[in-house]
Amino acid sequence: MKKNLTVLALCGTALLTACGQEQQPPVTVAEVPGVEAAAGWTQVVREGWPEAVPREGLAKGLTLPIERYLVSYADEITFLEGRGNAEIKCMRALGFPSWRTEKLGANPPSSGSSSNMERRYGITIRSEAEKTGYHDPSESAGSTSSLAGQETPQAIAALKGKQNGKAVQALEGKPIPEGGCIGESRRQVPSPDITLAEELSGQSFTASQETPEVKAAMAAWSACMKERGYQVATVWDAANLTDPASSSSAGDVEKKTALAEVDCKQQTDLVAIWFKAEQKIQETLVAKHQDALGKARANTVAGLTAARQVTAATR
């Protein structure tokens, strides 16, 4: 509260234009309490989740302006949990009392930054490069768990509102919502509204690589890699040297390449220079699209609040 009072006081005495440029505080998800997943509803594993800001490596502590308009890993799971619970609620009402959804949060990525900061400029963590090269140390196949047993033809009709390509209106007298329970869950829990933020993030990502300072730092990095025997113009080429589909390199080659990439980045300060260039570009983009971004963020917050409310109601 004190912070808001200070801002208001400043606005009272400062120029209007200065007030207009004041950055809005990030909109946070409303205080709908998170609840322990109730038995029979969407299960969530909350251990080993990554931090929202890199804790180690060349990108340690770095965050970009656009991140306040993107979604953290924790919020992604909140959203999926709400969707899953809306689906279960709907399926139970249609006569499927034991309907289950996938367990969430069990295979968290090693990166929690909403701008992918740990790998945004290529790999930045030496210990990861050493252990798993370019692969994600927390990597699992991430494939769907086996809930296939519950997917009888009747269940699919309830889930999708379709059978053999045709819409199904009702199941044993109970009306099926449009698009089935999946359609219902999408209406109850709208997706985060982050496409604009992602588009702008992509624009600054591309533009930053065209700046003279980043080009110079990349060239210095490339020269450093050349000294170590790698012919690579950019960091993207380094990862692709050991693309599993185009080379038969063993794990050791990949690790050595990855280590060289990180060491040369350290030597040339590439990550810090690149981050600074992108941060500047993003500040301009965010200011230019402030209104639209603010509206989208409000939609995202509303969606996440709805997700939490659906989950809270399962208790």
Partner: peptide
């Protein structure tokens, strides 16, 4: 290897890729 910027497709999303 999950490098660079990204775009999220939520369940139900059907859309073009961002320009980057």
């Amino acid at each position: 290897g999950y490098g660079g910027t990204y775009q999220t497709y939520y369940p139900g999303d059907i859309k073009n890729l961002i320009s980057a």
